[in-house]
Write a protein that binds this DNA or RNA. Structure first.
Lengths: 190, 190
DNA sequence: GTTATTTCTTAACCCAAGTCAATAAAAAAG
DNA sequence: CTTTTTTATTGACTTGGGTTAAGAAATAAC
């Protein structure tokens, strides 16, 4: 299970065995059942997450409709906007499958940083990566039609399509489930 | 002119007069004519910008069509994705009006940081702010119809509507100029 | 394995945005 | 001020997604 975290961190930093040991001792791990709401609209957010196993999605409730903004799977960190802004959340975070998560908090992060000062350098890098990917996400949304967005998703993360109900994929693409059905049909017959 | 920069920085840090003096001495300022391309698709980006006067927009060229992703005005910093990633840019940056810009580079930033070490703390904060606003931008796009997006823009930045040609606003909203005309008509007659 | 629930597809109809084309209005250039 | 260029509007028509409703398929629960 630790592998998932080390695998993620290895993209940014080379940890010694000693550092890995410290990290293993520090981790705060919890399990959640499918359907669990990790964060709700109006709630304050005191925790950020790292997915060891499972799948999570974020969504707004707009006039009763779900508007999915992101899917998260193994090896991905989740830092809610509300965690950063310290204001009530405007969206929901929900487990799409049974999940095993490593949970971070301000206090535990500070504590961990004391023991592993080298991790500090990681902060800005993660932020930059996150910003770049967020921009690319937006830009793709602007540039592509729903049909192209679906094909793009097929190319980039085919795994998601086999893991996530189509009506949530549709929402993520900004369309209704019926439209996604039609798009899939259109693509097949061409 | 310095005021614009100090005004911007005052949101994040209180500068002493001495620090302000250092900053004034360090600034690298240039003027650009309307229509100037500050960055082109395929180009490397070695500069970031801060707008002292004027207006800039960023856009992709997708199959010959302009897809506007952002407008920038006075007091706004512009850090091209390509500046961060050190890869060729995928979009254009163009002056929509005659502009006066303060221009940053890796070298000058490093130099400035040596003289004003306190500025270092600002980096992560700026990144966080940028990330938060980028996310909100995306989320709004997902949540709102083109008509709602226009009204949102009217509420949030009425100034832009009087400053920027409608066909670029339309592109920014993700629609054609003709559709924006019709939306405006619809809104007026209701 | 049967039942219940959730998810997916299809069809008919509607509507908002896209497209094409022509004209009007406004801004820039001379 | 006049001409040219850019920007905005309008109309007719097409198209793709939204909506509603029904049924099929797949999953989960028992």
């Amino acid at each position: 299970m630790d592998d998932v975290i080390f695998d993620f961190l290895s993209k940014y930093i080379d940890l010694t065995q000693e550092e890995k040991d410290i990290l293993s001792g520090q981790k705060f791990i919890k399990s959640f059942k499918k359907g669990t709401l990790l964060l709700q609209e109006g709630e304050m957010s005191h925790e950020c997450f790292f997915i060891l196993k499972g799948c999570i999605y974020s969504y707004y409730l707009v006039e009763g409709d779900i508007k999915v903004t992101e899917f998260f799977v193994e090896k991905q960190p989740i830092t809610p906007i509300a965690y950063t802004t310290k204001k009530p959340s405007e969206y929901y975070l929900e487990c799409l499958e049974d999940c095993i998560l490593s949970i971070g908090s301000q206090e535990r992060s500070a504590e961990l940083l004391k023991r592993l000062p080298r991790l500090a350098a990681l902060g800005p890098t993660l932020l930059e990566d996150e910003l770049a990917s967020q921009r690319m996400k937006y830009d793709n949304f602007i540039k592509l039609t729903p049909e192209k967005r679906y094909q793009h998703l097929q190319d980039q993360s085919p795994d998601l399509l086999n893991r996530i109900p189509q009506y949530l994929i549709a929402s993520y693409l900004g369309i209704q489930p019926e439209s996604l059905s039609r798009i899939r049909k259109r693509i097949l017959s061409s």
